[in-house]
Computed example of a mutant assay.
Amino acid sequence: MDQKIDWLIHLVANGACDECGEVETDFLPYMCNAHTHGLERYGHLDFQMVLFLPTEEIGRILNTLGLRVQSGERFQSGDMVSGIYEDCDVRLDEYEETGRKVLRVIIPDANNIFPGEGDCTLPYCLQLLKTDELCAERGIPS
């Protein structure tokens, strides 16, 4: 069966919009809000990433998970998912994103330490922030 990507990825991050030219500067460094819309047609939560990686990498990760859902795989909060990276698993945690539940993709740091487990390094440790705390004015307390 040929798979077709039939969901959207919405990415909000610091920088200028290629379409409208509007400039966003509110996010903490290395953070974003990238999420899918449309996986509910498969009876599944959408996915979210908040670690700002190259846009192609964000798209690869979110689309890979979406294609796995489309093929019948089901994920839930707390799942450790292999096959995204060769050298580590990623973890899925349930979060709220603009009033809906999503599964956030949590990526370990270079030492394979997840946020909340030991000395996870910046910016990886920031992946546990609530969605509305990703903006600089509401994020890390001074």
Rank of each mutant, 00 (worst) to 15 (best):
S77A: 15
A110M: 11
D132L: 03
V12A: 13
F47C: 04
G43N: 04
E57H: 09
E97K: 12
E94I: 02
C17S: 15
A110I: 09
K4Q: 12
D93S: 09
E73T: 12
E86L: 13
T64D: 09
E137D: 14
G118M: 07
G78L: 03
D87L: 09
G116F: 02
V50M: 07
F75L: 06
N14D: 10
E40Y: 10
L65F: 06
L65N: 10
L39N: 06
I58L: 15
L51G: 05
L51P: 02
A110S: 13
E94Y: 00
N33R: 14
R41Y: 01
Y124A: 08
C88S: 09
C125I: 11
H35S: 13
N63H: 10
F47N: 04
E133R: 14
G139M: 07
Y42D: 09
M1N: 09
C17A: 07
V12P: 00
V50Y: 05
K101N: 11
T98I: 11
P123G: 06
K130R: 14
V23G: 03
Y85F: 15
S82D: 14
D132A: 03
A136E: 14
D18T: 12
I84C: 03
N63P: 00
H44T: 00
K130G: 12
N33Y: 00
E97G: 02
